[in-house]
């Protein structure tokens, strides 16, 4: 029996499952801190019952730690929710600054554990296009993964959305080791598929360590050659 798979759907599922795994890991880390905080409070209660004095400063610090973790988890879940709802509509107007910020949050753990840092340059003016938000997120995630494999010694990837003549673009720089051959591999391993689905294109300036994704103002526009 041969199983028929839809490559775009499979790429989307891979992306979604990787992000879900990373998010659940983050939540577990946060829960571990809350768990230790509760355990510490139990220890303090026992010690107080034995007659040791309470330390209000320490208790205050513990409350701050717990609040910080609750806020952290809340942000993680909000971002997860935004990602999940990006499949609600096939096309909509997407603010690339906001989307970039979301992707920076969602990819942070993956980047940090591999020793990389992502710097997002927010556009001075809002930049938006009509596109498929989920596919665009998938493409950004794929590009960030590729960027890690070609990043320079600084291990810093810069991501900057901006307007261009066709609509908008997202520029990834700091990719000092990028070559045309590597870009072709990246495109063959799912990049091309997503670019086509988004009616977008990809340009590289290998000498300058830069890769740019160019998006039409409206996904339904005919692609400029």
């Amino acid at each position: 029996m041969t199983i028929q798979t839809d490559p775009l759907g499979a790429a989307g599922l891979t992306f979604f499952s990787k992000i879900s795994a990373s998010i659940s890991h983050e939540i577990k880390n946060s829960l571990a801190v809350i768990n230790e905080s509760a355990g510490y409070l139990e220890d303090v209660t026992l010690m107080t019952r034995k007659g040791l004095p309470l330390d209000p400063e320490r208790l205050g610090a513990l409350a701050s730690t717990m609040l910080k973790q609750v806020q952290r988890t809340n942000t993680i879940i909000k971002n997860m929710n935004r990602l999940a709802h990006s499949l609600d509509e096939d096309y909509r107007r997407v603010d690339l600054g906001e989307l970039g910020e979301l992707m920076a949050h969602l990819s942070e753990r993956t980047l940090v554990t591999k020793g990389f840092r992502l710097t997002l340059t927010a556009p001075a003016q809002p930049v938006s296009v009509i596109t498929h938000p989920f596919f665009l997120q998938n493409l950004i995630w794929l590009t960030l993964n590729f960027a890690m494999s070609v990043c320079g010694e600084s291990k810093t990837i810069l991501m900057a959305p901006s307007k261009n003549a066709a609509g908008a673009e997202i520029c990834f720089s700091g990719l000092d080791r990028i070559t045309e051959e590597m870009v072709q591999d990246f495109l063959a391993q799912g990049g091309r598929l997503l670019l086509d689905a988004l009616n977008a294109s990809c340009h590289t300036a290998t000498g300058q360590g830069r890769l740019t994704l160019s998006l039409p103002e409206d996904i339904h526009q005919l692609k400029a050659s």
């Binding site: 880390n29 571990a32 801190v33 230790e36 905080s37 355990g39 510490y40 220890d43 010690m47 973790q69």
Partner: peptide, 15 residues
Amino acid sequence: DEVDFLNLMSERLKT
């Protein structure tokens, strides 16, 4: 690398 976790667990084991 979770500093809060590290500090809390360390304190609890020390007690």
